[in-house]
Design a protein around this nucleic acid. Structure first.
Lengths: 251, 251
DNA sequence: CTTGACCCTGACGCGACGTCAGGCCGCAGC
DNA sequence: GCTGCGGCCTGACGTCGCGTCAGGGTCAAG
């Protein structure tokens, strides 16, 4: 199939398909001698996934990493999409309820407080991220604790927590810069501080959990990006330090 | 309240409020001596409306025209939002169903046709516009006819229809330019052609309906914009011609 | 062998902000 | 009184996901 047909079938414009091709999100599996894009059924499959994730609000770059993850087979995507769609359903229902509440209030001559009226917008920002996080960690004790504690935090609390975190990260970066070994006493000390910070602010972070986190810093691109954004090599450095510290206490 | 507080309450960034101020969508009702934005409760009300419409996918400019329409009291907005949210609910449910269908198909080893898989995306483009249109005309016979006929149209059909329409509109513009009276024989002839075109291509357009359409050309800004984009004064001209033609046949 | 629909690749534009940069408030603490 | 330090201000440029030409090749039908 050529672009026009695919566009008509999927309900997108040709330009959109060009765009997806250029950014590498969906490149047709073939071209004719004249350079015409040729889409295979597999390409259509992928397009379908792309459109679903897009509809759910994912930035295209993230859609690409999701779909290119070789450890995620189609069933994983379907389950995730199902969950995200149900989240959206709940959210929409909440908004419907809010509007109905307001209509009723109006008809009774009452007026709602600003807090009441904005609450449906308030904590939903991470529609997709929250869903993903819950998929990974939902149901665990740590997750529940974290949810409960962070919900109670004020803006000042957040700023304090962020300052603490920034501090430790900066000292990690300094250690890396100065050539301090990642599995040495100093770096392990920082790792321990890091662990205690998490325990204080989010959830009881034991050594095994901390070691798991450490692994994620080099495996999950979002964490990796965070640390590499501070200093190149920092993700690996922190990961090593955290795991060394865990090993020391664990065994 | 100053920007920061409003932003925190509504779950948006300060930058967003700056933006809404600059484009005139939501300008705080006051400023302090130092130039600090001061938001009143009424401003918060408006912000709430803005965020709801935004969430529903309306471009900000359109949100502004909706909210600035003096003929639309708060209740109108609430009803519209309620309808749009319910549309979204239905649509999301359809998508959930589609994903479930696909999961089942996969588990049975069957695979769906491309058409089946994309159909949920297909005809939904005008989430909001379609909803608005249906709100106005839904349930009428003309609406149903139009829906049925346009669904059956191929791309070529659309092009042909568009060419026809463009032709009549160009002749209307020429008449206007040449100073031909809008309620004269020539202009009424064009109006009659216009009416028959609609009847052929969309729905049985009698004289009363046509007269109603004519009124809309000067009352609904979208129609007005369309005609004024062709030639200044054309909206009024066509409107007059159409109504004169209807009056001639009606009485 | 032309015509008209369809395809290609730039390249610029746009909406709705994000993200600095440079500088002015406002109030707490010394 | 001064000095931070967070919050606010106004530009101004960057980003994302395309829309929209411009200039030109391709292909099936007549």
């Amino acid at each position: 199939m050529n672009v026009g047909e695919v566009a008509a079938l999927a309900g997108v414009t040709v330009r959109t398909l060009h765009h997806y091709d250029r950014i590498g999100l969906l490149s047709p599996s073939g071209r004719t001698a004249a350079g015409y894009r040729q889409y295979s059924p597999a390409d259509l499959d992928r397009l379908h996934q792309v459109l679903l994730y897009r509809e759910l609000g994912f930035p295209l770059e993230e859609v690409a990493t999701l779909l290119d993850d070789p450890s995620a087979d189609p069933a994983v995507h379907l389950r995730r999409q199902h969950r995200l769609l149900q989240d959206r359903l709940e959210r929409t229902q909440a908004m419907v309820a809010a509007v109905e509440k307001e209509m009723e209030a109006r008809s009774m001559g009452i007026s709602l407080t600003p807090e009441e009226r904005f609450e449906v917008f308030g904590d939903w920002l991470p529609e997709e991220y929250a869903a993903e996080a819950e998929e990974k960690w939902g149901g665990t004790e740590a997750w529940a604790q974290s949810q409960q504690r962070t919900r109670a935090m004020t803006k000042d609390d957040w700023l304090r927590v962020k300052a603490e975190t920034d501090d430790v990260e900066a000292r990690f970066a300094a250690a890396l810069r100065d050539g301090v070994p990642a599995d040495g006493e100093t770096a392990m000390g920082l790792a321990e501080e890091h662990r205690q910070q998490i325990s204080r602010n989010f959830y009881d972070c034991g050594y095994e959990i901390h070691a798991g986190l450490g692994r994620m810093y080099v495996e999950d691109e979002r964490f990796t990006a965070h640390y590499e954004g501070i200093a190149p090599g920092l993700a690996q450095y922190v990961s090593t330090a955290v795991q060394a510290n865990a090993a020391r206490h664990g065994g």
